[in-house]
Amino acid sequence: MSRTRRTDEGHGQVGSALSGIAVALGCVLFLGGFVWGAIVYQPYTVPTESMTPTIGAGDRVLAQRIDGSEVKRGDVVVFQEASWGDMPMVKRVVGIGGDKVACCTDGKLTINGQKIAEPYLPAGKSVSLTGIKTTTVPEGRLFMLGDERSGSLDSTVHLQDADHGSVERGAVRGRVDAVAWPMDGMLAKPTGFEALPGGISQPGPLKLMLTAVVAGAVLVLAGAAYGPIAKRSRRPRTRAAEPVRA
């Protein structure tokens, strides 16, 4: 056996081993990403237009399963409260326990007297349509508003309740990170609440999960394609016969 042939065979064995490792690692990343996502996130369908333009009616969202104690101002959450119809609802948290919520000052929502910029609201529609009088959110509870303020059945409808329209933190089922369908992607950060005590929530691990799934798919395809490509490259080429001179 020639040295060249032995070298080619050695390279082929190493390549096959690396190919197998790539496929195995790719499967771990691909399947692991999906399993991780299924554990951390729950899909929901939003039935109404109350969160437009952030989320439309019929959109499928991905909500990270969190405890209600982790919720911060500006979060879009899924919650279920008996007095609100005892069905999963999606709203934005604008106030937490102890906050004084009011509207409006110069057309803006105020939290503890501080005007809040809300770029996610529908363009050209005044936030004053909510007509919120100054109300204090009870401790351990959350004040909810829809981004479509003119037609959202939110905390403003329940202001006369004993809890001033608020929802207890324990009613929260998840925090919405992204709109999965249509594929609008991650929700924008609610930066208007960033300067308030406690700041805003950071996105969950959704991007990391998607990166793992994509990287896994690439490794599986690359590893699976190595064999046919390597075999084709090692195939001996036939040389054309030289013409015979008389």
Score class of each variant (00 low, 15 high):
Asp8Asn: 11
Asp8Tyr: 06
Asp8Glu: 13
Gly12Glu: 13
Gln13Val: 14
Gln13Asp: 07
Gln13Gly: 07
Gln13Thr: 13
Gly15Pro: 03
Ser16Cys: 07
Leu18Asp: 04
Leu18Asn: 05
Ser19Pro: 11
Gly20Leu: 10
Ala22Asn: 04
Val23Tyr: 02
Ala24Ile: 15
Leu25Asn: 01
Gly26Ile: 11
Cys27Trp: 08
Cys27Pro: 00
Phe30Thr: 08
Leu31Val: 15
Gly33His: 12
Gly33Tyr: 09
Gly33Phe: 10
Phe34Gln: 07
Gly37Asn: 10
Gly37Trp: 01
Ile39Ala: 09
Val40Met: 00
Val40Arg: 04
Tyr41Cys: 09
Gln42Glu: 14
Pro43Leu: 00
Tyr44Leu: 01
Thr45Pro: 01
Val46Gln: 09
Glu49Ile: 09
Ser50Asn: 10
Ser50Tyr: 03
Thr52Tyr: 03
Thr54Trp: 02
Thr54Lys: 03
Ile55Ala: 13
Ala57Gln: 13
Gly58Leu: 11
Gly58Asn: 11
Ala63Val: 05
Ala63Ser: 11
Arg65Cys: 00
Ile66Phe: 02
Ile66His: 01
Asp67Lys: 11
Asp67Gly: 15
Gly68Asp: 05
Ser69Met: 03
Ser69Arg: 14
Val71Gly: 06
Lys72Phe: 06
Arg73Val: 10
Arg73Thr: 11
Asp75Lys: 12
Phe79Ala: 05
Gln80Pro: 02
Gln80Tyr: 02
Ser83His: 08
Ser83Gly: 13
Gly85Leu: 04
Gly85Trp: 05
Asp86Gln: 12
Met87Ser: 09
Met87Leu: 08
Pro88Val: 08
Met89Leu: 13
Val93Gln: 11
Val93Glu: 07
Ile96Gln: 09
Ile96His: 03
Ile96Leu: 14
Gly97Arg: 08
Gly98Asp: 06
Asp99Thr: 12
Asp99Ile: 12
Lys100Ile: 10
Lys100Phe: 00
Val101Arg: 02
Thr105Phe: 09
Thr105Ala: 15
Asp106Pro: 03
Lys108Cys: 04
Leu109Tyr: 00
Ile111Val: 15
Ile111Arg: 05
Gly113Ser: 04
Gln114Glu: 15
Gln114Lys: 15
Lys115Tyr: 01
Lys115Cys: 03
Ala117Trp: 04
Ala117Tyr: 06
Ala117Val: 13
Ala117Pro: 06
Leu121Val: 08
Pro122Ser: 11
Pro122Ile: 13
Ala123Gly: 07
Ser126Ala: 14
Ser126Phe: 03
Ser128Pro: 02
Ser128Met: 06
Thr130Arg: 06
Thr130Asn: 08
Gly131Tyr: 01
